[in-house]
Design a protein around this nucleic acid. Sequence first.
DNA 1: GCGGGCGGTGTAATCGATTGCATCGAGGTC
DNA 2: GACCTCGATGCAATCGATTACACCGCCCGC
Lengths: 384, 384
Amino acid sequence: MGDESTPASMKALARNGRRSGPPAAATILDVARRAGVSTATVSRALAAPDKVAEETRARVIAAIAATGYTPNASARNLRARSTQIVLALLPGISNTFFAPILNAIEDTLSAAGYGMIIGDTRHSLQKEAHYTRFILAGQVDGVILFTGQIPRDGDVASASGRVPIALVCNEIVGERRYSVFDVDNRAAAARATTHLIAAGHRHLGHVAGDARNIEAVERMKGFRLALKRAGIPPDEAAIWEGGFRYEDGVAAATRFLALRERPTAIFASADHAAIGFIRTVRDAGIRIPEDVSIVGFDDIDYASVIDPPLTTMRQPRASLGRLAAEDLLQRMGRDAVDVPPIRERLRCDLIERETVGPVATARSVRRPAKLQREGSGAARGGVT
Amino acid sequence: MGDESTPASMKALARNGRRSGPPAAATILDVARRAGVSTATVSRALAAPDKVAEETRARVIAAIAATGYTPNASARNLRARSTQIVLALLPGISNTFFAPILNAIEDTLSAAGYGMIIGDTRHSLQKEAHYTRFILAGQVDGVILFTGQIPRDGDVASASGRVPIALVCNEIVGERRYSVFDVDNRAAAARATTHLIAAGHRHLGHVAGDARNIEAVERMKGFRLALKRAGIPPDEAAIWEGGFRYEDGVAAATRFLALRERPTAIFASADHAAIGFIRTVRDAGIRIPEDVSIVGFDDIDYASVIDPPLTTMRQPRASLGRLAAEDLLQRMGRDAVDVPPIRERLRCDLIERETVGPVATARSVRRPAKLQREGSGAARGGVT
DNA sequence: GCGGGCGGTGTAATCGATTGCATCGAGGTC
DNA sequence: GACCTCGATGCAATCGATTACACCGCCCGC
């Protein structure tokens, strides 16, 4: 510590001397010198405390406190080839649907010492490409995708093989390198539709999602399947493609209102769209559920808040998030190189609230034979 | 390129040979060898194309394409001491209030070549500490904070000085190292309250936020200020502290309903709380705005969706986000070391919808003299 | 004909941590 | 007492890029 102290301090001066910027952060070398040990010992004192003598470790800890040292993540990541961070890639944070899934992911990951950061692509391929570079550059150890659609050039798919990827509520057709966690959209949509049919409805409409979205397609298939089972021909004029957003529900409602022969019940492929639909038709004087019944999908927070509270298929969002995170943890582990991707499909639950009732008597419909429920009164309840 | 090719390939084998994991990513050295140049030239071909001969650059580009090379971010960050990434730290992504702000931030940053990632602290000091380490470890070049409250040990404040920090819709008292972008909460709250007074109300309640939140405190002050100006004594039994969330509005409504002498108008410190309040009192048979008028704060998306559409103070969220991002860009620039933090306070706009009406005639109130509006009919409109 | 400038490129130091291997002393064993 | 073991520590290579500096032709001007 004798003669090299001068060049060392000059170096520190050189770092801090230029301009009046903030003082340079302490490095592991600063800590080592102050504790009178080598950098290797400092590193070990932090990473493997039992390999360092009690007394030495105390000195290191003290030196760290005195210098305010924080390990430089870039250096560590470079050497260790891992970041202990997972990126969750969303198509839009304004969609509250994702929040409970993300919470579950974060809880699961942080319990294992991993961190989670969120990226928002806002449905933009360009922004997605930006995050793809981020992933390929080794900035994260794993990815959870909510955005996958059809494989495209330069999309996140190109990162497969480098880091493990899990898809949640989504699927990329023809891609076997991801784990997939979703619900059985077709079966759930069929159940929702059947619920309307059971209430006596024979003329049904569908607020469909984007045809490029695999989930939207599956829900549409489930809708048609339920109709077919009940022997009801679909009314193509009452099937409106668009998307899962509020505005898409508004657009569908506009087309609904323009219809000469309106359906008496609607299955909406997403709650946001269902709410946009309800809001719009009510402004036009249509009563829910007296004039039109409606079932949504997702059970977002506002489903129970709007008026009337929305009957909907609930997705087990927390479970989806937890499973995806656990899968990623397994496949990110340094000893687990050959853990194959898995696929899990969870069940949805129908949450009955107040938007489904019997067919309005005013309409010219044959009185439904198998109607058991008593209408909005009985449909009341569900969850809070 | 003669005799060292053997050790090089052995090295590559060593990297790829262990286990059956994914092939190691190509490094700049792989590209350099394939293009027959040095790593310096490859680096320059990417970072400073005009410093490299046209023909050489073409060879490098081809080599990059052939190898599938992506620069390792950790190495670059380590050397360049910057990441070109900004972290936005939220108390909870389930709160849709933040979405438009974040979008504006992302747009502004990405136009300047920066990326944005989101961290969610969920009001947990422990999770915040996790992100603090992330920041101190040099993983980001700047931070936008939505979470700051009272300075605490180990919170993000300890990162000040290392990286520039901007606060949005928040403030940390006694902290001068941040830029702050918010609205004049006190003035806006006073205007909202005055709007109710102008409609004839003389008995006002307040759904207040968390007393530890500076914004909530300011809004409460504005509420009281407006009352004082109008010569109305505050009814302390009708001021309910809680928070900005839906549940807090529900809790306030419960206490409102228990009141013997209920106020005829409510100023809620946040839309989410206002909506919880409305939903709850309506279930108890109270009509809005006939029995109770209410003004919210924020103008979140659902403010116009709920029934009846909520009259509220709109915060200029996109502007706040844009300004914060621009400020950060200035202070992150390598040549801008001494750019001081700034403070901007923006104006809110009152958005009149349908939750404010005149005082119910049934109540024993002196007929308001200066009431001009005709009630819910005239209050209709506002924005979509 | 020679020096200077300049465009293009390579060499090697550097960023800050981790970690395999060497070293060293203390204590135990035969 | 020589040798071995083992815990504690240091030395130095390493991760993959960036970049200051040196170098080499080539062209130009005087």
